[in-house]
Design a protein around this nucleic acid. Structure first.
Length: 123
DNA sequence: ATCCTGACCCAAG
DNA sequence: GCTTGGGCCAGGA
Protein backbone atom coordinates (compact mmCIF):
# COMPACT_ATOMS: atom_id res chain seq x y z
CA UNK A 1 0.00 0.00 0.00
CA UNK A 2 0.98 3.54 -0.59
CA UNK A 3 1.87 5.73 2.37
CA UNK A 4 -1.13 7.42 3.91
CA UNK A 5 -1.53 11.14 4.44
CA UNK A 6 -0.41 12.44 7.81
CA UNK A 7 -3.15 13.63 10.18
CA UNK A 8 -2.25 17.19 9.31
CA UNK A 9 -2.40 16.53 5.58
CA UNK A 10 -5.67 14.67 6.03
CA UNK A 11 -7.38 17.59 7.75
CA UNK A 12 -5.87 20.03 5.27
CA UNK A 13 -7.54 18.21 2.40
CA UNK A 14 -10.89 18.18 4.16
CA UNK A 15 -10.80 21.95 4.51
CA UNK A 16 -9.28 22.50 1.08
CA UNK A 17 -10.84 24.79 -1.50
CA UNK A 18 -14.00 25.85 0.31
CA UNK A 19 -16.17 28.23 -1.74
CA UNK A 20 -14.50 31.58 -1.35
CA UNK A 21 -17.80 33.30 -0.77
CA UNK A 22 -18.72 31.14 2.18
CA UNK A 23 -15.20 31.39 3.53
CA UNK A 24 -15.25 35.16 3.30
CA UNK A 25 -18.59 35.35 5.06
CA UNK A 26 -17.27 33.27 7.94
CA UNK A 27 -14.15 35.40 8.20
CA UNK A 28 -16.10 38.66 8.15
CA UNK A 29 -18.39 37.33 10.85
CA UNK A 30 -15.41 36.50 13.03
CA UNK A 31 -13.86 39.92 12.57
CA UNK A 32 -17.09 41.67 13.47
CA UNK A 33 -17.10 39.74 16.74
CA UNK A 34 -14.06 41.61 17.98
CA UNK A 35 -15.26 44.41 20.28
CA UNK A 36 -13.80 47.90 20.57
CA UNK A 37 -10.60 47.93 22.55
CA UNK A 38 -9.75 44.32 21.72
CA UNK A 39 -7.78 42.63 18.97
CA UNK A 40 -7.27 39.17 17.48
CA UNK A 41 -4.54 37.84 15.24
CA UNK A 42 -4.97 36.83 11.60
CA UNK A 43 -4.51 33.22 12.62
CA UNK A 44 -7.04 33.41 15.43
CA UNK A 45 -9.61 34.98 13.14
CA UNK A 46 -9.07 32.26 10.55
CA UNK A 47 -9.40 29.51 13.15
CA UNK A 48 -12.50 31.09 14.70
CA UNK A 49 -14.07 31.24 11.25
CA UNK A 50 -13.43 27.54 10.81
CA UNK A 51 -10.39 27.72 8.52
CA UNK A 52 -7.29 27.15 10.65
CA UNK A 53 -4.81 27.40 7.80
CA UNK A 54 -6.24 30.47 6.14
CA UNK A 55 -4.61 33.32 8.01
CA UNK A 56 -3.14 34.65 4.77
CA UNK A 57 -6.58 34.86 3.24
CA UNK A 58 -7.77 36.89 6.21
CA UNK A 59 -5.19 39.49 5.25
CA UNK A 60 -6.12 39.14 1.60
CA UNK A 61 -9.78 39.77 2.39
CA UNK A 62 -8.94 42.73 4.58
CA UNK A 63 -6.96 44.32 1.79
CA UNK A 64 -9.85 43.92 -0.58
CA UNK A 65 -12.75 44.93 1.64
CA UNK A 66 -11.34 46.19 4.89
CA UNK A 67 -13.39 49.35 4.56
CA UNK A 68 -16.57 47.65 5.67
CA UNK A 69 -14.93 46.00 8.67
CA UNK A 70 -13.17 46.99 11.91
CA UNK A 71 -9.91 46.08 10.18
CA UNK A 72 -7.71 47.77 12.74
CA UNK A 73 -8.59 45.04 15.26
CA UNK A 74 -6.84 42.30 13.31
CA UNK A 75 -3.11 42.16 14.02
CA UNK A 76 -0.10 39.95 13.58
CA UNK A 77 0.98 37.23 16.01
CA UNK A 78 2.32 38.61 19.25
CA UNK A 79 0.36 41.82 18.83
CA UNK A 80 2.47 43.20 16.02
CA UNK A 81 1.17 45.61 13.42
CA UNK A 82 2.05 44.14 10.05
CA UNK A 83 0.75 46.91 7.85
CA UNK A 84 3.60 49.06 6.66
CA UNK A 85 4.24 52.75 6.46
CA UNK A 86 1.20 55.00 6.73
CA UNK A 87 -1.13 52.05 6.94
CA UNK A 88 0.59 50.72 10.02
CA UNK A 89 0.66 54.14 11.58
CA UNK A 90 -3.02 54.63 10.99
CA UNK A 91 -3.86 51.24 12.45
CA UNK A 92 -1.95 52.04 15.60
CA UNK A 93 -3.64 55.41 15.97
CA UNK A 94 -7.07 53.89 15.45
CA UNK A 95 -6.37 51.25 18.09
CA UNK A 96 -5.00 53.74 20.57
CA UNK A 97 -8.18 55.74 20.09
CA UNK A 98 -10.08 52.64 21.21
CA UNK A 99 -7.92 52.47 24.31
CA UNK A 100 -5.53 49.76 23.16
CA UNK A 101 -2.12 50.04 24.83
CA UNK A 102 1.23 49.34 23.25
CA UNK A 103 4.54 48.31 24.78
CA UNK A 104 7.42 48.86 22.43
CA UNK A 105 6.11 48.03 18.99
CA UNK A 106 3.62 45.51 20.28
CA UNK A 107 0.11 45.56 21.64
CA UNK A 108 -0.22 44.46 25.26
CA UNK A 109 -2.04 41.26 24.39
CA UNK A 110 -2.56 40.26 28.01
CA UNK A 111 -5.03 43.13 28.19
CA UNK A 112 -6.53 43.35 24.74
CA UNK A 113 -6.61 39.82 23.37
CA UNK A 114 -10.13 38.93 22.27
CA UNK A 115 -11.11 35.33 22.96
CA UNK A 116 -13.53 33.93 20.42
CA UNK A 117 -16.41 31.81 21.60
CA UNK A 118 -16.78 28.90 19.13
CA UNK A 119 -20.46 28.38 19.86
CA UNK A 120 -21.32 31.79 18.49
CA UNK A 121 -20.37 30.61 15.05
CA UNK A 122 -22.75 27.70 14.75
CA UNK A 123 -25.16 28.06 11.83
C1' DA B 1 0.35 25.15 -16.21
C1' DT B 2 4.04 28.05 -13.82
C1' DC B 3 5.72 31.89 -11.38
C1' DC B 4 5.18 35.62 -8.18
C1' DT B 5 3.15 38.13 -4.52
C1' DG B 6 1.19 39.04 -0.03
C1' DA B 7 -1.84 43.44 6.21
C1' DC B 8 0.90 35.41 7.80
C1' DC B 9 3.18 32.09 11.27
C1' DC B 10 6.60 29.77 13.88
C1' DA B 11 10.53 26.99 14.98
C1' DA B 12 15.51 27.75 14.85
C1' DG B 13 19.67 30.03 15.34
C1' DG C 1 15.40 40.24 21.76
C1' DC C 2 15.64 39.92 16.17
C1' DT C 3 16.27 37.56 11.60
C1' DT C 4 15.53 33.67 8.60
C1' DG C 5 13.87 29.64 6.14
C1' DG C 6 10.28 26.83 5.15
C1' DG C 7 5.43 25.97 5.25
C1' DC C 8 0.84 27.79 3.83
C1' DC C 9 -2.83 29.32 0.48
C1' DA C 10 -5.53 31.98 -3.01
C1' DG C 11 -5.43 35.06 -6.78
C1' DG C 12 -3.44 37.44 -10.54
C1' DA C 13 -0.06 37.82 -14.51
Amino acid sequence: MKSRASPREFSRRLLKAPPSEQRDRAIRRAIRQIPRGSVATYGQVAAAAGYPLYHRQVAQLLRKSGGSLPWQRVVGAGGRIRLRLDGGHEQRLRLEMEGVKFRGGRIVMEEHQHVFRPWEFED
